[in-house]
């Protein structure tokens, strides 16, 4: 078997410390999750950073978070960092059964937001990042639609017309009082 250059990787995924584990130095993060961690919820859609079905949340130490496209970002970029994937949002009991969804997940299902759901992980993560940002820094009601367009606008969904994703996201933000009137 060939010797492919590897490198040690440690990171935190959904609150759980992973590694150190030796993986190829040029491995993409999506392959690390799929082939090395068995976490397949982050979907490979385009493999090229376009469709955003793969995005995960990168959490920073200052409490901010951002979307990362893991199909074009190397696994080692995340060395020492903390990420959340679609598998990590819902609250689960000791048996691993879902007890509660995060507000975005709940609204997405209430609104029948997705169909096949292949793109849903990306939308959940992007909308979650938006909601968390607005929780730190609310915006004026008049800016809400623009903020949603900004957050979700590049995500591809081939089943839906995006309508329910957008409406559900707006509903979450409004219900949490993150868009201030006037």
């Amino acid at each position: 078997m060939a010797e492919l250059p590897t490198r040690s990787l440690s990171l935190t995924i959904n609150g759980e410390a992973i590694g150190p584990v030796d993986v190829p130095e040029d491995l993409m993060m999506i392959d690390f999750l799929h082939e090395y961690q068995g976490l397949t919820g982050s979907r490979l859609g385009c493999g090229q950073g376009i469709c955003r079905a793969c995005v995960v949340i990168l959490d920073h130490d200052d409490g901010t978070s951002e979307e990362m496209r893991i199909c074009i970002t190397g696994a080692h970029f995340f060395n020492g960092k903390r990420i959340r994937t679609i598998e990590g949002h819902a609250e689960r009991d000791a048996a691993g059964d879902i007890v509660a969804l995060n507000p975005i997940q709940q609204k997405f299902i209430d609104h029948f937001a997705f169909q096949c759901s292949y793109c849903a992980p990306g939308f959940v993560n992007a909308a979650t990042v938006l909601v968390e940002r607005l929780q730190r820094d609310p915006l004026a009601a008049g800016e809400l639609e623009g903020a949603i367009e900004q957050a979700l606008g590049e995500h591809i969904c081939r089943c839906t017309g995006y309508v329910r994703y957008y409406q559900a996201t707006r509903a979450v933000i409004e219900e949490l009082g993150l868009a201030k009137e006037g």
Partner: peptide
Amino acid sequence: FRIDAFSKVCGG
């Protein structure tokens, strides 16, 4: 909601 909504929205 969809019968499979929970698994879909949780990556399951």
